[in-house]
């Protein structure tokens, strides 16, 4: 039951997107998200959608994996849409009882929905094409300048890597303890909220004890293998920019420019007023 949760799921393939430096993918994802909030016109969304579609195609990751990531935000998406739909003041299109759907509300709701969907799909392209380890390496490298402000960049990256390694182990353990307590008559499902919370004690106490034991063991094992923080360390897989990474940066910058021009500046100049326009 708990194994259905997918976290940072990686899809093995040998596409160009997979081979890109993780830093490129991180920066590009951020730029893509920025572009979504900069554009304000249907043309902009069309450009973003087209760009995303092309990237997904190149990545060779089946589209159903992207949709899988959507499941987790369906509720959030619905809430956003409903709130915007009913609570935006303006010219009423339909009135149901005391609630009215306004033209402005519809516009904003659709806009937010598109932004959210693109945002989730965009970031899942990154996580699906980058191994978690590569991702933490990339983050460590990008955050390096923060070292000046005494941010323990290496340690944070190491913590993330360890967390990613132990999440599946702890999920499996949760499953096991849950089953063991059910075998002792525990009931995790029925009852009100307080009863439910109480019923978690027999699950959480053993889980925490186990997590601490594992942490303790791991710390000892790391020390035994000469781990002493980021100093003196070399890398087995150092990050190196290649030609394709430079090309990718160029593509993304061009995309961003096209997006801003097509989705923000141009519509303002010619003043076309479609349904989704300003």
């Amino acid at each position: 039951m708990l194994r259905d949760i997918t976290l940072g799921q990686y899809y093995q393939s040998d596409s160009v997107i997979h081979k890109l430096d993780p830093r490129v993918k991180l920066v590009s994802t951020i730029l893509f998200i920025i572009s979504l909030f900069v554009v304000d016109h249907i043309i902009g969304y069309l450009i973003a959608g087209l760009f995303l579609a092309v990237v997904i195609r190149i990545s060779k990751v089946p589209f159903k994996f992207m949709v899988r990531g959507m499941k987790s935000i369906v509720v959030l998406l619905l809430i956003t849409v409903i709130f915007n739909l009913f609570l935006t003041p303006g010219e009423a299109l339909v009135t149901i009882w005391k609630l009215k759907i306004t033209k402005e509300g519809l516009r904003i709701a659709v806009k937010m929905a598109i932004r959210l969907v693109f945002l989730i799909i965009g970031s899942s392209v990154m996580t699906l094409t980058t191994t978690p380890n590569n991702l933490t390496d990339g983050l460590e490298s990008i955050m390096k300048p923060l070292k000046i402000f005494r941010v323990p960049v290496h340690e944070v990256a190491m913590m993330m890597a360890i967390a990613l390694r132990f999440i599946p182990i702890l999920l499996e353990e949760t499953d096991k303890i849950m089953k063991a307590q059910i075998a002792r008559g525990a009931d995790f499902e029925s009852g009100n909220l307080i009863k439910k919370a109480k019923s978690l004690v027999p699950l959480l106490v053993p889980l925490f004890i186990s997590a601490f034991r594992r942490a303790n063991d791991l710390a000892m094992a790391m020390e035994a293998r000469c781990y002493r923080g980021g100093e003196h360390r070399t890398k087995m897989k150092p990050l190196q920019y290649k030609k394709r990474d430079a090309a990718a940066y160029t593509v993304v910058v061009v995309y961003l420019a096209v997006c801003i021009i097509g989705g923000r500046i141009l519509p303002g100049l010619i003043d076309i007023n479609g349904i989704f326009g300003r």
Binding site: N133, R165, I169, R214, M220, M222, C226
Partner: peptide, 28 residues
């Protein structure tokens, strides 16, 4: 150590084996 799960740090076999040498500062 005893528990195989609690001493593997890497998420890929080869990266775990490389962990010790990395800490020692062995060239890539």
């Amino acid at each position: 150590f005893q528990n195989p799960d609690n001493q593997i740090i890497g998420q890929v076999v080869e990266e775990d084996v490389g962990f010790g040498p990395e800490n020692m500062g062995v060239p890539t």
